[in-house]
Design a protein around this nucleic acid. Structure first.
Length: 202
DNA sequence: ATGTGGATCATCT
DNA sequence: GATGATCCACATT
């Protein structure tokens, strides 16, 4: 009961990120369960990661990133999209993994009602995934296992590829995006229209 | 297939 | 008052 329930999430975000591939995220809302099998993730670090929300230190929004592993961090993107992160690292050492895409494996009718469009695209992208799971800002700061649950993959994921992160302006080339090779639910790579020149890899 | 621009709002300076 | 870890629609090749 007591102790560290989320040891599998403890460690550097880029080490933990691939462990989330194949894991099952679910919410139970509006009288139905929706479960997504994760196929794409992105790691975000702390003060040394220019692309991370935690880079400039703790604020009201990013507070959950400084919490213990297994903390849910949801942020609102462009006023429209609720994006899901899971905190990694250790308390006081900011780090998180953004759940970027997945395949809906349970509650497809409910996911369709919330999203529409092709089944393959239901959770293809962080905003769409958040909409599928009916996330809101009320989820941020909660612990996994309450509103949002994640089951670790029964077996380690198959072939994992990695590459630069999607849509970030700073540190755009740090290869901290991980996905399952050949999976059709992985989102398309989009580079930020105005990437800052600079270190990128450090 | 690829590229541009608009929507929309919580958060931070 | 500016910004953005996005998505969709529409335009052009």
């Amino acid at each position: 009961m007591s102790g560290e329930p989320f040891t599998w999430l403890t460690g550097e975000p880029d080490q933990v990120a691939p462990r989330l591939l194949g894991a099952l995220v679910s919410t139970s809302r509006d009288g139905g369960v929706v479960t997504v099998r994760i196929t794409e993730v992105e790691a975000y670090g702390g003060f040394d990661d220019e692309a991370s929300h935690a880079c400039a230190g703790p604020t009201r929004r990013n507070q959950p990133m400084f919490g213990p592993p297994g903390t849910v961090y949801v942020y609102l993107s462009h006023g429209l999209h609720h994006c899901l992160n899971v905190t990694t690292g250790t308390a006081g050492e900011p780090g998180a993994v953004l759940i970027r895409a997945g395949e809906v494996v349970e509650g497809i009718p409910l996911a369709r009602a919330r999203r529409g469009g092709r089944d393959r695209d239901l959770a293809r992208g962080p905003g769409r995934l958040g909409q599928c799971l009916a996330l809101s800002l009320d989820d941020t700061g909660t612990m996994l296992g309450h509103g949002v649950a994640i089951r670790a993959p029964a077996v380690p994921a198959g072939e994992v590829l990695r590459g630069p992160r999607v849509g970030v302006r700073r540190a755009a080339d740090r290869p901290w995006r991980y996905w399952l090779a050949g999976d059709t639910t992985v989102s398309g790579y989009r580079r930020h229209p105005r990437v800052d020149s600079g270190p990128g890899l450090v």
